[in-house]
C-alpha cells in the first residue's frame, strides 16, 4: 500500500477550482511523505478531464469509466472507487470536500472499515490533519490509525491550486464491474431554484445595501457589484420602506433571516433589527464611512470609506479575480 491518490470531480469535462486544490493538497502530502501522487476521475466520459490532469506533474492519471457512471449516484461511485482502491491500494486518498464527496465517501470508507477525515484545512507532519471544530471556534488535529487506506477531503480554499507544476502524466483506464441493479437511487437532472422568486434564505452570497446609498438612483452601483459576485441583492429596512427595492429583499427582524457564506453590507450602519437577520452569515464584510458603525463590530472584514468610491473599485477587483 503506497502512494497518494487524488479523486477529482468533473462536470461535463470541466474541473472545478476545489478539485485542483485537492490535487495541490495531494501533491503537498506526497512531497511531505515522499511518495508518488496520482489522480483519478470518475464518469462515463472522462477523456477531457483526464487530459487536463495529465498536463500536471502527476505520477499517473486514471480514468474510472463506465456507462453507469454517467450520472452521479452514491452506489455507483462507491462501488467503482471501492474496486479501484482495492486494486490500486493507495495509502492516502484525497478528495475535494464537495457535496458529492460528502454524499458517498463516508459510505466508501465504511466499506474499508475506515472513516473519512473530512473538511481538512491543513496537513502537518505526521501526517496530522487539521480541521475546524465547533464551527471554527477550535481546531482539531486528526491522525489516521486504521490499517486500510486513509481517506481525506479538503476544504475549498485551503490549498492553493495556482502553483501546480506542469508535467505529462500517463493516462490509464479502469473499468469497474457494475450492474444497474446495484444502483438503488434514481437521480433526476439538476435544476435551478426559480429565478423569479427571490429566495434570500438559501442564497450563498448576498450584497446588502443600506441608507448609505442615499438615493434609488445610486442602486445600480451595488447591483453591478452583486452581479460581478453572482450574489443576491438585499437591503435594510429603510431602503424597502422607501420602495427602492421590493419588501422581499429586506433583511432583518421584520424581513428575511439569511445565512449565506458571505454577507457584504454596503452603507449599512447595523441597527439591531438588521443584525438579527444576518448574524448567521459565515463571513461578514462591511463597507461604511463611519468607523464607529455597529456593523463593524460583527464584521470579519471592513473597509472604512465612501461607498461611492469603494464599491466600483471592489466590483473591478472581483471581476479581475474571477478572470
Amino acid at each position: 500500500m503506497s502512494g497518494v491518490l487524488v479523486v477529482i470531480e468533473q462536470r461535463d469535462g470541466a474541473i472545478g477550482r476545489i478539485s485542483w486544490e485537492a490535487v495541490a493538497a495531494g501533491k503537498f502530502l506526497g512531497t511531505k511523505i515522499g511518495v508518488d501522487v496520482g489522480a483519478a476521475v470518475i464518469g462515463a466520459a472522462t477523456e477531457s478531464a483526464a487530459a487536463q490532469l495529465s498536463a500536471k506533474a502527476l505520477a499517473k492519471v486514471v480514468r474510472i469509466e463506465h456507462a453507469l457512471l454517467a450520472q452521479y449516484t452514491s452506489d455507483g461511485y462507491s462501488l467503482a472507487l471501492e474496486q479501484f482502491i482495492a486494486q490500486d491500494k493507495p495509502e492516502y486518498v484525497i478528495f475535494p470536500h464537495t457535496y458529492q464527496v460528502r454524499d458517498f465517501v463516508p459510505a466508501l470508507a465504511t466499506r474499508f472499515g475506515e472513516m473519512l477525515i473530512s473538511d481538512v484545512i491543513a496537513i502537518a507532519d505526521g501526517p496530522v490533519f487539521a480541521r475546524q471544530l465547533l464551527q471554527g471556534r477550535l481546531q482539531g488535529s486528526y491522525r489516521h490509525t486504521g490499517t486500510g487506506p486513509c481517506l481525506v477531503s479538503v476544504q475549498a480554499g485551503a490549498f492553493r491550486a495556482d502553483a501546480l507544476e506542469a508535467g505529462s502524466a500517463q493516462v490509464s483506464r479502469f473499468t469497474p464491474a457494475l450492474d444497474a441493479a446495484q444502483i438503488r437511487t434514481r437521480p433526476e437532472p439538476p435544476f435551478r431554484g426559480s429565478e423569479q422568486t427571490i429566495d434570500l434564505g438559501s442564497a450563498q452570497l448576498i450584497v446588502s445595501v443600506g441608507r448609505g446609498i442615499k438615493d434609488a438612483e445610486n442602486l445600480p452601483l451595488v447591483q453591478e457589484l452583486a452581479k460581478a459576485l453572482g450574489a443576491e441583492l438585499a437591503a435594510s429596512r429603510p431602503i424597502c420602506d422607501n420602495g427602492w427595492l421590493p419588501m422581499e429583499r429586506q433583511v432583518g427582524s421584520s424581513g428575511q433571516t439569511v445565512s449565506p457564506r458571505l454577507y457584504l453590507a454596503v452603507g449599512i450602519s447595523g441597527a439591531i433589527q438588521h443584525l438579527v437577520g444576518m448574524k448567521g452569515a459565515q463571513c461578514i464584510a462591511a463597507i461604511n464611512k463611519d468607523p464607529d458603525a455597529p456593523i463593524f463590530e460583527v464584521a470579519d472584514y471592513g473597509i472604512v470609506g465612501d461607498l461611492f468610491e469603494v464599491v466600483p473599485a471592489l466590483t473591478e477587483a472581483v471581476k479581475a479575480a474571477k478572470g
Binding site: 476544504q155 480554499g157 452570497l205 473599485a313
Partner: peptide, 16 residues
C-alpha cells in the same frame, strides 16, 4: 482595500 478584501474572501475566509 478592495483588492485586499477579495484576496481575504478567497483565501482566508474561503467564501468566494
Amino acid at each position: 482595500a478592495s483588492a485586499a478584501l477579495v484576496e481575504k474572501l478567497r483565501f482566508e475566509a474561503r467564501v468566494l
